[in-house]
């Protein structure tokens, strides 16, 4: 995409939209699209803002305002964040030689967020980020800021024992780990885990990418092995060399969604569908007052089809839940009929 001409991009996007029309579960598509878009936006890897927006417009034309409002929210967040960061630096002149931060303020609900426990940031970063918090909350009353340390990136300058200098592009987690080596030569896995408070699965992945990937192994691990274990010790790899000045250290990929993650996404989509199905049932019953079970299933399916195919069993469960909450009742004589209660 990167080198493609604008017209070519358009052609590809139009083809994508053609396929999109055949999708039955557009809400699931939206979920994944959002996840990937978030990744592109946050890592600054979006091929071009124009083509991202062009795709958004196409989705909006196809599915309506509702479908894309959250996605547009993401773009707006980034723009606002950029301005906010600038105002922060303009209004806070005396920062000494603290690291420069660029904060992206993500509205809860617009972004695909995972529950995240903020890890312990290095003191240098913590100081400036707390100043930012003070600045932000000072101008926006009643908001809450939590640092999503699982989503950020950092550029750090590193000087190795052999004198070579590099700029490392790493994730926030990786930065937290590397900064520890400013004041220590050797750290055990347990030390790192305790000081940073990074969740162990994430920490292991992060250490793997720092110590085990050829050409990017800025850390050295003892004993040498292909996996990270709780008893490992880590050192700065003084023999590190790279032809490039800027080294991008990825995180050992979970490129593909793991099976449990897939299940989780699936489940979240199912959860999101429940209120949509209920709303459709209530809308239909409000206008029809009395309707038999099979007609409800047909009507609800018809209403929701543009977004997803509701499962009849799920519709039934939602009807039962509405009966339980006294929105509907079964007819006294014909048990297949439901009545709207209002």
């Amino acid at each position: 995409m990167k080198e493609a001409k604008e017209e070519d991009v358009e052609t590809v996007l139009d083809k994508v939209m053609m396929l999109f029309r055949y999708l039955q579960e557009k809400d699931l598509f939206e979920k994944y699209y959002k996840q990937h878009l978030a990744k592109r936006l946050l890592s600054g890897k979006a091929a071009s803002d124009d083509s991202e927006r062009s795709m958004l417009v196409k989705l909006k034309t196809e599915c309506g305002y509702q479908f894309t409002s959250k996605l547009e929210g993401m773009f707006n967040d980034l723009k606002t964040s950029h301005d906010t960061t600038q105002r922060f630096y303009a209004g806070t002149p005396d920062l000494g030689d603290a690291p420069t931060i660029s904060v992206q303020i993500l509205t809860t609900g617009s972004w695909p967020t995972q529950p995240c426990n903020t890890c312990n940031l290095p003191p240098e970063i913590l100081g400036v980020s707390e100043m930012f918090r003070g600045f932000y909350l000072g101008t926006h009353n009643g908001r809450r800021l939590t640092w999503q340390t699982n989503m950020g990136t950092a550029d750090i300058k590193a000087v190795f024992g052999n004198g070579s200098k590099h700029e490392l592009n790493v994730s926030t987690y990786q930065m937290c780990v590397l900064m520890l080596f400013n004041s220590a030569d050797c750290l055990s896995y347990r030390d790192i885990e305790q000081t940073t408070a990074i969740p162990s699965a994430d920490l292991k992945r992060c250490l793997q990418s720092l110590a085990l990937v050829k050409g990017k192994n800025v850390l050295r691990k003892e004993p040498m092995s292909r996996d990270i274990s709780d008893d490992d010790n880590f050192y700065v790899n003084d023999k590190f060399t790279s032809k490039l000045f800027k080294v991008k250290i990825g995180t050992v990929a979970t490129q593909k969604e793991s099976e449990p993650e897939k299940m989780e996404t699936r489940q979240r989509v199912e959860e999101d569908r429940k209120p949509q199905i209920e709303a459709a049932i209530v809308r239909i019953m409000k206008s029809r007052r009395v309707l038999d079970h099979n007609s409800i299933v047909t009507e609800v399916t018809k209403q929701l089809q543009p977004r997803f195919m509701p499962n009849p069993v799920v519709i039934k469960k939602r009807v039962e839940s509405l009966i339980e909450r006294e929105f509907l009742e079964r007819d006294k004589t014909d048990r297949k009929l439901y009545r709207y209660l209002a």
């Binding site: 079970h293 099979n294 069993v313 039934k316 039962e320 297949k336």
Partner: peptide, 10 residues
Amino acid sequence: EEGAWPYLID
């Protein structure tokens, strides 16, 4: 099975 029985009965 289309008799509108509660899902538990189905």
